[in-house]
Design a protein around this nucleic acid. Structure first.
Length: 348
DNA sequence: AATGCGGGGGC
DNA sequence: GCCCCAGCATT
């Protein structure tokens, strides 16, 4: 029995019943694939259900505001996915007659759809024999065929795509693609895989050579940047506050946050006072009170954000003040959402 | 060819 | 603390 047959047999006996497994609706498959990019099934699943409940069709998603889409996406991370999702929904709805492209190339042209996602949709929805290569596939193939080429090198990416194409079952590409990914997620796991209990261990080359724990090989690149955030949380005489939308490139694009004073190094209270924009203070001398003495360290993949929040008590009225109850309508980073939560529990 | 982009969970 | 997760866009 060949590799693909073994994978498909294992899948038939072990697959999880996931909601996108019982459909070939391109909208639902596309939605699930975008959400699961660099995201575990357990984390993405509740978002998938939420989105389908709110937007049953691509037309519903197209008709929503970006703000609403980002709000529903809040907490899932990599927010460009949500922006591209919204953009592509409008394109499909308004320019493609509500129909998703049915070819690999057509799908690849959509924003937010790369090689992996185009292959996934094309194979699952339209039976196109295009192999998916995600983190699971890299791991399974590198072990089963004992390949130590770094999977994130240029040569590795090309090699594994070819290997994946040769290993797949072109007769049932959708089933096979889901099978190998599920096998990687459940059986051929990154750490401490249960090779003794694996039905493929007799033909797995890495297992024969005792190399399973050392594959796949990756070129590592971890450099964490430190940033220092001081958030000014205005409270005006009407108990209203202020949010601003992040427009610049970088983290959290298009999400909202309180007025931010950022610095390359840690600053003290007096320095911070000098950095408060006059536009914010208005008339009178505002009171500045720290909420957290100890910095909150918010960790992103490549950044550590050392953060303090300050209440800025204003004498007069904000022009665009937002009542505390209205804050929940705005898409905000988890760091801000957590703060708002504590604010409601303590300060008010 | 490299880099930036979130947040959560496992070990 | 480090690694990984149904990757993609940009430079």
């Amino acid at each position: 029995m060949g590799f693909s047959d073994q994978i498909l047999r294992w899948y038939g006996e072990n697959k999880r019943p996931l909601p996108w497994r019982d459909t070939k609706d391109p909208y639902k498959i596309w939605l699930s694939e975008i959400m699961l990019q660099q995201t575990r099934v357990a984390q993405g699943l509740p978002y998938y259900q939420k989105f389908l409940g709110e937007f049953p069709t691509v037309k519903h998603l197209s008709g929503a505001s970006e703000k609403k889409v980002l709000k529903l996406w809040q907490g899932l991370g990599y927010y460009s996915r949500a922006r591209n999702l919204h953009h592509t929904a409008r394109k499909v709805d308004r320019e493609l007659g509500g129909q998703f492209p049915e070819t690999y190339d057509g799908l690849l042209a959509l924003k937010g759809v790369g090689d992996y996602t185009a292959s996934a949709i094309a194979s699952i929805c339209f039976g196109v024999p295009e192999p998916v290569v995600d983190g699971n596939v890299y791991r399974v193939l590198s072990r089963y065929f004992a390949v130590d080429t770094p999977v994130n090198s240029t040569a590795g990416i090309r090699y594994f795509k070819t290997l994946a194409r040769e290993a797949m079952d072109p007769e049932q590409p959708g089933e096979y693609n889901q099978a190998i990914m599920e096998f990687g997620a459940m059986q051929c796991v990154p750490a401490n895989p249960d090779c003794a209990g694996c039905p493929l261990n007799k033909s797995c080359l890495a297992h024969a050579q005792g190399l399973a724990g050392q594959l796949p090989v990756k070129i590592k690149k971890t450099k964490v940047r430190k940033r220092y955030f001081n958030y000014l949380v205005p409270i005006d005489r009407d108990q209203k506050t202020l949010l601003r939308q992040r427009k610049e490139r970088g983290i959290w694009q298009h999400l909202y946050e309180f007025p931010l004073v950022e610095s390359e190094y840690r600053i003290n209270e007096d320095t911070l006072k000098g950095q408060i924009p006059g536009q914010l203070t208005g008339i009178g001398d505002p009171g500045l009170y720290p909420v957290n003495e100890e910095e909150i360290v918010h960790k992103l993949s490549h950044q550590h954000l050392y953060t303090r929040f300050w209440i800025l008590e204003l004498q007069d009225r904000l022009d665009d003040g937002i009542a505390l109850e209205e804050l929940e309508a705005y898409p905000v980073p988890v760091l801000i959402a957590e703060f708002i939560k504590t604010l409601k529990n303590s300060y008010f």
